[in-house]
Deep mutational scan, measured.
Amino acid sequence: KTVHVNGVQYDFDNPEQAERFAKEMAKKAGLQIQFHGDQIKIE
């Protein structure tokens, strides 16, 4: 899974790890999470 945070890309082999990371980042920055198939976007 790939997580995009403000244009920066983070790759994870483990989907659960990717989602946990995305939730942490979104919570910290007060941003929205969008799921697009294999990609998670935080903007």
Rank of each mutant, 00 (worst) to 15 (best):
K1R: 11
K1F: 15
K1H: 13
K1V: 14
T2Q: 06
T2D: 01
T2A: 03
V3W: 02
V3C: 12
V3N: 02
V3F: 04
V3A: 03
H4A: 06
H4F: 15
H4L: 13
H4W: 15
H4M: 14
H4N: 08
H4Q: 08
H4C: 15
V5T: 01
V5W: 14
N6A: 07
N6M: 10
N6I: 02
N6F: 14
N6K: 03
N6E: 05
N6G: 09
G7A: 02
G7M: 02
G7K: 02
G7S: 03
G7Y: 02
V8Q: 07
V8N: 04
V8W: 04
Q9Y: 07
Q9R: 14
Q9S: 09
Q9T: 10
Q9V: 13
Y10M: 03
Y10P: 00
Y10G: 01
D11V: 14
D11R: 12
D11K: 13
F12S: 01
F12H: 00
F12C: 08
F12E: 01
D13H: 03
D13A: 08
D13M: 06
D13C: 13
D13V: 05
N14E: 07
N14D: 13
N14M: 04
N14Q: 04
N14P: 00
P15Y: 14
P15W: 14
P15H: 11
P15R: 11
P15D: 09
E16F: 06
E16T: 05
E16P: 00
E16K: 04
Q17L: 09
Q17I: 06
Q17D: 14
Q17H: 05
A18F: 03
A18D: 01
A18H: 00
A18M: 02
E19P: 00
E19R: 09
E19G: 02
E19Q: 09
E19S: 05
R20C: 15
R20H: 12
R20K: 13
R20D: 10
R20P: 00
F21W: 09
F21Q: 00
F21H: 01
A22M: 09
A22H: 02
A22F: 09
A22Y: 11
A22Q: 04
A22S: 04
K23F: 10
K23D: 11
K23T: 11
K23A: 11
K23H: 11
E24V: 01
E24A: 06
E24I: 03
E24C: 15
E24W: 12
E24M: 05
M25W: 11
M25Q: 10
M25K: 01
M25E: 14
M25Y: 13
M25T: 06
M25A: 10
A26H: 02
A26E: 07
A26Y: 05
A26Q: 04
A26C: 14
A26N: 06
A26F: 05
K27P: 02
K27E: 15
K27N: 14
K27W: 11
K27H: 14
K28P: 09
K28Y: 13
K28N: 11
A29R: 04
A29D: 12
A29N: 13
G30P: 01
G30M: 05
G30E: 10
G30S: 06
L31K: 03
L31R: 00
L31G: 10
L31I: 09
L31S: 09
L31T: 09
Q32F: 06
Q32T: 12
Q32D: 07
I33R: 00
I33V: 12
I33D: 03
I33M: 07
I33Q: 04
I33N: 05
I33H: 05
Q34N: 10
Q34L: 11
Q34T: 14
Q34A: 10
Q34G: 06
Q34Y: 13
F35G: 06
F35R: 03
F35I: 11
F35L: 09
F35Q: 07
F35C: 04
F35P: 05
F35T: 07
H36G: 09
H36Y: 12
H36M: 12
G37N: 08
G37H: 08
G37P: 07
G37M: 06
D38E: 09
D38V: 10
D38S: 09
D38I: 09
D38M: 08
D38P: 07
D38K: 03
Q39E: 11
Q39T: 13
Q39D: 11
Q39R: 07
I40R: 00
I40A: 04
I40G: 05
I40N: 05
I40E: 06
I40D: 05
K41L: 14
K41M: 13
K41C: 15
K41A: 09
K41Q: 10
I42S: 07
I42D: 06
I42L: 14
I42K: 05
E43Y: 11
E43L: 09
